[in-house]
Structures are given as C-alpha cells and as structure tokens.
C-alpha cells in the first residue's frame, strides 16, 4: 500500500525505529547535548565519551519519528571508534546527502547511512534526519546550549 514510500521508509529504518541501538543514558559521558525540532516536537539527548579525540562511546535518549529515531540510532553506531575529525567529515557528507547538495553520494564512506538518502525527496522531513547530526556537530564543538532545527 505504501509502495511510493519505499525509498523513504526502508526496512533498516523500521528496524532501528523498533529497536533503537545505544538507547541509554551514559553516566560517564563527557559530552551531552540536547537537540530539539520545534516543528514536530522531536527531542533527543546525545551522550558522547571522547578519549584522546576518539569517540569511544555514543548513546542517546529521546522521542521522535521513525526517521529521526533511525537516524540517531544509526549515527551512534557509525561514529563509535571514529576520531572527532572523521565524525565531522561524516556530518558534512550526511548533510550533503540529505539536502541534495551533491548528486553523487560516496556510498562507501557513508555506509549504512545511505538508507536515509530518501529524505531529500521530502523537504518536510529533512530536519527529522539531520537533527541527530546537528546535535553531534554541537557536541563535537563542545557547545553546551541545546540545538534547535529552526
């Protein structure tokens, strides 16, 4: 019935929505930033543990739509073990992929995150996918204030 939406709601997204990975409070986190999408009320708190410029752990709490939940869940998986610099590069690539700034997405670099490329066809939903990454960006820059998509 929802054939038209297959590019947007791929099975991986349903899976991460049903069973979000790294969905926990991290007691020993040394970065913690809130992200908020006032348009739809999505809220998340991102926790990072960064040791010697390497993200050794990432987790989150919050509530949101399937796209935003899957996006933050996938993000916490992929950034673990990456250096801050590598994570920043991923943020840029992800942002370009979802806002359609680059035609060619480097699928290899972006890996599993490619399942979120479909949002570019749904301008109203791009912010759902990018909220997690803007929050990560703020955490990497060690900003304290909450991130808003507005």
């Amino acid at each position: 019935m929802f054939e038209d939406l297959r590019d947007l709601y791929q099975e991986v997204i349903f899976d991460h929505n049903r069973n979000p990975r790294n969905f926990r409070i991290m007691e020993n986190a040394n970065r913690r930033v809130d992200g908020f999408n006032p348009l739809c009320g999505d809220k998340l708190t991102l926790f990072l543990k960064i040791d010697d410029h390497v993200i050794s752990d990432a987790s989150f709490q919050g509530s949101g739509c399937a796209i935003s939940t899957a996006s933050v869940s996938l993000m916490t998986e992929i950034v673990k073990g990456k250096t801050e610099q590598e994570a920043e590069t991923l943020f840029t690539q992800f942002h370009e992929m979802t806002t359609g700034k680059t035609e060619e997405v480097n699928l290899e670099a972006i890996g599993k995150l490619a399942v979120l490329a479909g949002v570019r066809e749904y301008p109203a939903r791009v912010k759902c996918a990018t909220l997690a990454w803007h929050t990560l960006d703020a955490a990497l820059k060690n900003q304290q204030e909450a991130v808003s998509t507005e």
Binding site: L8, L39, C40, G41, D42, S63, C65, A66, I67, Y122
Partner: peptide, 29 residues
C-alpha cells in the same frame, strides 16, 4: 508507537492531507 510525523507522511503518500504536529497549541500537547 507511531509518531504523528510518520503518520502524516504515510497518509500523504495515499493522497490524504492531515496535519501532524502541535497545531500551534503546545500547552495542549
């Protein structure tokens, strides 16, 4: 277990226009 934004997008794919959000009434939410 289904967020209103997902409801809005999925119904839209069926040609159905509904509003998903706080309806400019955040205290009600």
């Amino acid at each position: 277990r289904i967020h209103p934004h997902d409801i809005g997008t999925m119904l839209d794919s069926l040609g159905i226009a509904v509003r998903a959000g706080h309806h400019c009434a955040m205290p009600v939410m």
